[in-house]
Design a protein around this nucleic acid. Structure first.
Lengths: 329, 329
DNA sequence: TTGTATGCGTTATCAG
DNA sequence: CTGATAACGCATACAA
């Protein structure tokens, strides 16, 4: 392996000088810079990030903490979108990102968790979908041992930022448009999780609309489960005019149930996942740009790691309808 | 940060002794081992993997190289399954895994690619779905600069293993069962990619069966595209009795097309993805355990990194039919 | 069985 | 603007 020392020798300069051009320090003359770069190219030198990290005490390592299979079943594309968005942005920023699943750290207590991330030399975390019940993880965030960006959860502090769409508003808007178009007043609202941050926000949006329009809405908790939404639909849909769900997956569950029940009720979703294209009907939903959210989270984490302080970031959403042919082309 | 040196001081032993118990070397007395472990626990010491890697020149870092969005569109769950399987196994084995997308390295030449991975201190690669056209990546593999496990591509060598199911046999079997059950002889076979390894193997399986049963089969290339399969179905299905596709996604595209055409033809898929549950009909398909394959790949890579030499690994498959209610529960 | 000393490839401080 | 040189935290050959 060719090292900085070889480059120095080849270029006829000191090691420290090479280091300086490598990290483009200001005080290097054009001339030596050229010499060094020539040597680097000639030798095919590639800086050793490990050594760099050890010396500088900056690893640039970041973990993307995800909950696979809690929101949903096997086909959940949302985590994948987060991964794609985060990894691409991390590469762009020269950060080193690693993916961690909730299940991998579920059994740990705070100390173990801290050690786990420290042993990996991780400086920052992006946590997707932290819930109120993730006590340990929340303690970890509060400990301020790491810079953290929370996706879809509150908790801004000096070292923690939060990033999300305006769930309340989005739910309000999509439900309003949906109900308006279908002219319904008796609705079944299938909520997400009890104690889930986004679930509660969306529920609030629904309640606001209900109050404003004087709707009759029956609220049930679907736990973001397609199966649960199916069951609730079978149980309650007949006496309702429309079904509004706090997630697309539940909306699909509801729609499939309606088809099996052989009755029709309009269904409204939330998230804008492409699976909606397979549900058979074009449903109203809210589109979140998950890749964009994750990319933003990486940017924000990078800012925190450079000394910035936490903030709350609200990203835009769109009201859309998804159809099969759009999804596959 | 508490280091090995602090532990040594606390335990009243030498640094090297601590290092030895950390890496459980044989020649350490129970007594000192206890002392050291006590000190470790007391101080909350966590070994610095960066320093360890620098010193030992073994990083244990591995890259999972994936092709997102080539087989398919947005909803492709297969890469996600690979990621889950690989990451979980890597954690279990104490390896450090990072995910890389083809798009991130697509523009590089071999030297750049080698440097890219070297700069990340990566020792091994798991490459999913390498095709004949990925010339640069294939050169990288041949360079033997890294230990490599290829998923779904041939190329065994001293430093490279290959892992896959028996695609030829699987295609043969599933098509046979499917045709037998539906009693068809005139079939449209929608193949994967020209020059794709698995595509060609599956095609071979189909041809074997055709020969054996004296079938009339029209072969068209669908490029693993749902949309393309849809088009081909619209074009050719009417005059055929059945459609066999080299992937589930294409099978879904075909099935949806048939529904829109308002004709019925049995369709057979390949892969066993859960999206099949949403296609409206229960189709025959081959189930691959993608998580298991990825987990095996990590194991195999670990073996290679410890000095083992490359081998060809064939994993089992299953013939199944997927229905919606199984997918969501 | 334990300790000493050297080096891994960088960065950073401080003279020059 | 450039060059020595001391860390960084750990592993390991070698000495004791």
């Amino acid at each position: 392996m060719v090292s900085i020392r070889d480059v120095a020798k080849e270029a006829g300069v000191a090691i420290s000088t090479v280091s300086k051009v490598l990290n483009n320090y200001p005080n290097v003359s054009e001339e030596t810079k050229q010499k060094v770069n020539a040597a680097i190219a000639g030798l095919g030198f590639v800086p050793n990030t490990i050594a760099s990290a050890l010396s500088s005490k900056k690893t640039g390592r970041v973990a993307l903490v995800l909950d696979v299979n809690r929101h949903a079943q096997t086909v959940d594309e949302i985590p994948m979108q987060y991964i794609i968005g985060a990894i691409n942005k991390a590469k762009e920023k020269g950060m080193d990102i690693t993916t961690v699943f909730f299940t991998m750290i579920a059994e740990m207590n705070v100390e173990e968790m801290i050690r786990y991330f420290q042993s990996q030399s991780i400086e920052g975390l992006i946590i997707c979908g932290l819930s109120k019940e993730d006590v340990v993880l929340r303690k970890l965030v509060k400990s301020s041992k790491f810079k953290v960006v929370l996706i879809d959860a509150p908790g801004v502090s000096e070292s923690t930022s939060s990033i999300h769409i305006d769930n309340t508003k989005a739910q309000y808007e999509v439900a309003k448009k949906f109900l308006n178009e279908n002219n319904c007043r008796k609705v079944l609202y299938i909520s997400g999780k009890k104690n889930g941050y986004v679930s509660e926000e969306r529920l609030t949006g629904m309640k606001q609309l209900a109050e404003e329009l004087g709707l009759k809405v029956l609220i049930r908790t679907g736990n973001f489960s397609e199966l649960e939404a199916r069951k609730l639909t079978m149980q309650y849909a007949k006496s309702k005019e429309a079904i509004i769900c706090a997630s697309d997956l539940m909306a699909i569950g509801a729609m499939k149930a309606l088809i099996d029940m052989d009755i029709y009720r309009p269904v409204c979703g939330f998230d804008g996942v492409s699976l909606m294209g397979y549900a058979g009907k074009q449903m109203h939903t809210v589109r979140q740009d998950f890749q964009g959210i994750a990319a933003n989270a990486v940017e924000e984490l990078s800012r925190l790691m450079e000394g910035g302080s936490g903030q709350d970031i609200v990203l835009p959403h769109k009201l859309i309808r998804i159809k099969y042919l759009d999804v596959i082309s």
